[in-house]
Design a protein around this nucleic acid. Structure first.
Lengths: 237, 237
DNA sequence: AAAGGGAATTGGTATATATCAATTTAAAAA
DNA sequence: TTTTTAAATTGATATATACCAATTCCCTTT
């Protein structure tokens, strides 16, 4: 007795994906026509269409009316990946740097802050001026629950990457982040730190960072110079 | 004779979206069952399912097996997917709108512009003030090569989606876009159109849009109000 | 060789029907 | 009342069929 609970169209989907992964079907290749696939796999054309439709939605296949169904060219590009400031500046061909502004432990964080971090107890706050080619680029303020990162405050952070420390010393890896990006005018302190005129607008990033277990381990606020920084991204339908 | 070239399922899609926009269907509300919708709109259940399926893919509806189909709560996630202005505002729970500012054909575009579009010849330029809940949100300027879109300039664009027209009339679907995002201060004209004080900074988007064959078919410049708009995105390692 | 036109191919839309599976509802039992 | 069970409801999967629409292909004409 054949135990089959897996839907037919999902089975076909999987077979098609396997063919692509094994290289039997390469990007740009045309698939057999729907009517032929139906015969080949002994299912109705409608079922074949359902499998193909899902793969089209997942950008794996491309349909061309009157022509055929093709394997998509771009594979899992997904324009923007989570990077640290240093990684990003290096990618842009600039030399990253850092200047410590503030390093403190907040004993009783505001309710707002605690809610964002979904954590109670003391917070470690790290405020750094980030440099690119020795010129100010951004002000980065990170907030972390100190109970997860004991003794973190003893580091100096001048020539150390926060994320590298977290990964190597505490085994916490960033895997996902949610960002809100706004435009603002800088405060007097911000424009002085960033060394820009008060008429230059800035990017405000509010980031919530998740570790490999999907727990929030950092909330960061960053202020980027609008005259030096621009966001580049690629998005897909 | 009734001239109907628009597919039935797309008509239903539009009707459902309208019901949501008009508030007849609110987030969390349950839709009539598929069998009932089929009877109501005098079409087969399969056709109803196709309409609903597409809306589910676009995060407008949510299906729950055995329970029903519901209007999605707009959580505004999905920052990384390519959307039209209208789709995005709808996701944010706002009513999209449009006001035509300028519609013209440029006979001899600048070398710069032609290079961006990788096309020679006349350009169609469409400048619209985009509204959200009847208030200005952005100024959107689209540039398209007129040789690919004959008679496009005869449309009125007041209540029509540019991308829908391109898809339905010219069979051009947007599949990829590259964006550069900057922060600027608005020009006097921009602050007047957007109805904001000159001290409010704005987002500048420069977008190059690709069709299903990976050809550039549009270059768009958008100016978004910094006091009403923020970018939300999720990024992964 | 080039251009035009029509047939064949291929995906797109639409209907009708049947059965399965998850959930909800309501009736029955405790 | 609470719990359990069965039925009804609702979406999910699958088949068969028909015709429309965009593209390709090939034959004819020029």
């Amino acid at each position: 007795m054949n135990v089959k609970k897996r839907p037919l169209y999902k089975q076909l989907k999987q077979k098609l994906i396997q063919k692509i992964e094994r290289g039997e079907l390469k990007p740009g290749d045309v698939l057999p026509p729907e009517r032929e696939l139906a015969e080949l796999f002994e299912m109705s054309r409608m079922t074949v269409r359902q499998a193909i439709s899902e793969l089209v939605n997942e950008y794996v296949l491309i349909r061309r009316h009157g022509s055929g169904t093709y394997v998509a060219e771009h594979k899992i590009p997904q324009g923007k990946k989570l990077k640290s400031f240093s990684e990003e500046m290096r990618l842009r061909g600039m030399l990253p740097g850092s200047k410590l502004c503030e390093k403190k432990i907040v004993l009783s964080p505001s309710a707002n802050m605690a809610a964002e971090l979904k954590s109670e107890g003391k917070l470690f706050i790290l405020k750094r001026l980030r440099l690119a080619d020795f010129e100010p680029m951004a002000i980065e303020t990170s907030m972390l629950p100190i109970n997860r990162f004991a003794n973190l405050e003893k580091r100096n952070f001048e020539n150390e990457s926060l994320y590298e420390i977290l990964e190597e010393e505490y085994n916490v890896k960033m895997t996902k982040a949610q960002q809100k990006i706004e435009v603002k005018m800088p405060t007097p302190q911000e424009s002085e730190l960033l060394d820009i005129n008060y008429t230059i607008p800035v990017f405000h990033f509010k980031q919530v960072t998740f570790d490999q277990n999907d727990n929030i381990f950092e909330v960061a606020h960053s202020v980027y110079r609008g005259d030096r920084y621009e966001i580049e991204t690629e998005i897909y339908r």
